[in-house]
Amino acid sequence: MAELPRSGDPAPEFTLPSAPEASITLGDLRGRPVVLAFYPADFSPVCSDQMALYQAVKPEFDRYDAVVLGISVDGVWCHRAFADSRNLRFPLLSDFEPKGEVARAYGSFDAITGEALRTLFVLDRDGKVFWSEVSPPGVNPGADGILAALDAMAAATAGAAPGGSA
């Protein structure tokens, strides 16, 4: 498995299904901050709380124009049932076939359980890793780290381009 990409590394590219007839390509999101939330399994208690929290916090993520993507090895129909059960309205990507390929590319696959690790990445507008955090499977990381990273990124952008609109 690849190592966890570090700050400043280009985030590995991927295209993954987000629904039975739709997919999302990371490269298409250039120009916007992207939050990748790898998580072990649909419907598990901690993952359910974590994804429900991100839905509740979505208006805050929107203020940064950030795209939030959940990623697990569950299939698209499972994702749909999970999203319906929790009223999730942001994309859940299915790293199902080849199983965990994207999670592996992000150093975020647990070969023992066959699930993704609970890893957060915040990518900058150029698709580079700005911040990441690996949490123990049983700990819900919350959203404070993501928002602090988005703040720091906005501040760095503003500093690098004085007078810019960032």
């Binding site: 709380d49 974590q50 429900a52 916090v57 819900n140 990381p141 919350g142 959203a143 404070d144």
Partner: peptide
């Protein structure tokens, strides 16, 4: 709460 890491 969100900014403080409330996670559920």
């Amino acid at each position: 709460g969100v900014r403080s890491g409330v996670n559920g």
